[in-house]
Amino acid sequence: MFNGVGITGYGTYVPRMRIKIEEIARVWGKDGASLSKSLNIKEKTVAAYDEDSCTLAVEAARVACRNVDASKIGAVFVGSESPPYAVKPSSTVVAEALGSTPNMTAADLEFACKAGTAGIQSALAMVACGMIESGLAIGSDTAQGRPNDVLEFSSGSGAGAILVGKEKVIALVEATYSFSTDTPDFWRRSHAEFPKHAGRFTGKPAYFKHVAGAANRLFQELGTKAEDYDYAVFHQPNGQFPLKVGEQLGFEKEKVLPGMVTPLIGNTYSGATMIALCAVLDVAKPGQRILAVSYGSGAGSDAFSLSVTDEIENARQPVPVFEQIKDKEYVDYALYVKHRRKLKSL
């Protein structure tokens, strides 16, 4: 589909602060242990007071582009549902921080949790048609949940960046297919501070239908099946859904676990599939194949079939995702509220 175009670099950023699900449950008088177990999330990342989805995107982008001439990056896409400005792109800040400006294009994308992979698709197409030499796609969020809503127990902060190009490709993109419908499972109205969701309807008719829809469409078009892949990466709104959809599609648990970051950092929304894919790129060997499927409410999924090349050994990020996650400092609910600016007077 893309004639030798693929991933040429990747990088992630995970904020240092953590809050345990049990600590959030303590404040709201809920049973933390059973909540943590049912979500399969132990703790989540908390971005600092001076961090936002734009600073997270810059950190991930710097890692992904550490070995390239920034002026060759012809496009920067930042996908997020928590942009610091309602109007004014984060992508130009990222491009300026990398040193890619001004002869390039930039855009901020929005599609709930799948805006990062939408950026990968755009960059792939632009490289494949010769419009640009390489393009950068980032998924970044400081995900918010209304206090005491189930989302507050899962929404974390983090960013993943994928650089796409033709030279020194570390993972060839064999194909990408999407599956999209108009589904009101999760939304945030303009000027509203926190998102709303359709509760129990966010599962079957939303996440599972679209993730499986995109994966099955890709299998059909490529003539592949679960056994052909060594790793499967799925969007991770919690720690249960990806394992369940993996099982439905015929993947052994062992192929899904290497990308399972949500149990330790929470759902990083646009960052989730990107960080999970990066965690797999940290360990994947030449010749192995990866299936990656994002999910964005509203709703849609982008599925990618990737084939890892020998170049992977020269381009792994300096600190693997699961190592980055180990560097942490726990905060209590009060500090979390301060850092995430949940107090109205801040």
């Binding site: 001076d50 961090e51 950190e59 800040v93």
Partner: peptide, 20 residues
């Protein structure tokens, strides 16, 4: 070096980013 917000011109104004 890390990349952070260094200054905000109030809640409505521009955000200054930079190094820490």
């Amino acid at each position: 070096m890390v990349f952070r917000r260094v200054f905000e011109d109030g809640s409505q104004g521009a955000i200054a980013y930079g190094f820490k």
